[in-house]
């Protein structure tokens, strides 16, 4: 709950984020905070009795990046080591994911991004983050541990860009029939984002649709929003309701998510 001492896992996740940003400070202008930590920065006020929870920090790297500092070397020096996939960096308590929007990545590589001068396992390519490169804003991101006085002014993906990324992830996995990889929490995050002022989301979506770098994923995500959230019994609404079962009435969440999705779709105009 707001005002309570933040959960230890969140504190560690923020610490790992700031450690990574220290290491990569030479690239700071090309880094956009995405994922759960960005969502929580925007949705602080949206309380539902569901604890904020994330153990990792997701950073989008927006090419072209300079060759210095070498990401691979800088991350290792900061105490991170590779996880099982390109772009996953671990330390004792935290995880940092370095992600490159696939549509903006230099050609080559299957999963690992080919960033000149940075090693093939430094960052991973992900579709759906293109919107974060286009629509973001500077925010101050501070440590959550009272003894840690660090804070960084950095780019944070806009709510609309985060919505695009989440919808894209959900939609892609559903289309690939990878139901086992569909995570109820992603659907609930969509609902969390939809609770923000609809006009603000619509403005961001229009920016994303107007930029050729993000227009395609933007359009796809609106299709996913329609398919997954427009009806209260659509998969996304059902998943969001299921995520909160036991804390709130899943039916309330299903109806709410659907109502908000339709509000946004209406503001975006006809198909």
């Amino acid at each position: 709950m707001p005002g309570d001492a933040p959960d230890r896992v969140l504190v560690d996740a923020r610490r790992a984020l700031l450690d990574a940003l220290d290491a990569l400070s030479g690239h700071l202008d090309h880094i956009v905070l995405v994922g759960a930590q960005a969502i929580y920065l925007h949705t602080d006020e949206v309380t539902l009795g569901v604890a904020l929870f994330t153990k990792d920090a997701d950073l989008a790297l927006v090419p072209p990046l300079g060759a210095k500092p070498d990401i691979e070397k800088a991350m290792r020096q900061a105490g991170f080591y590779h996880g099982d996939q390109p772009g996953i960096w671990l330390d004792e308590t935290g995880q940092v994911d370095l992600l490159v929007p696939e549509g903006l990545a230099p050609p080559g590589g299957r999963r690992g991004a080919r960033l000149p001068g940075h090693g093939n396992r430094a960052a991973r390519k992900v579709l759906g983050l293109e919107a974060a490169a286009v629509d973001n804003e500077f925010r101050v991101v501070a440590a959550l541990d009272p003894d840690d006085h660090r804070s960084v002014r950095m780019r944070v993906a806009s709510p609309a860009a985060l919505l695009v990324a989440k919808l894209y992830k959900l939609g892609e996995r559903q289309e690939e029939r990878r139901g086992d990889r569909l995570d109820d929490k992603d659907a609930f995050d969509v609902y969390r984002l939809l609770q923000l002022p609809t006009a603000e989301l619509a403005r961001g979506m229009k920016t994303i649709l107007a930029d050729e770098r993000s227009a395609l994923v933007g359009e796809a995500s609106i299709g996913f929003l329609r398919g997954l959230f427009a009806a209260p019994d659509a998969l996304g609404c059902v998943m969001a309701g299921r995520y909160i079962e036991g804390v709130a009435d899943p039916e309330t969440i299903r109806l709410s998510a659907s109502a908000l999705a339709n509000e946004l779709l209406a503001q975006l105009g006809p198909e």
Binding site: T47, Q195, T252, L255, S256, A259, L260
Partner: peptide, 9 residues
């Protein structure tokens, strides 16, 4: 009634 942004909203 339904308040899609939650009771506090």
């Amino acid at each position: 009634f339904l308040e899609p942004r939650g009771p506090r909203a």
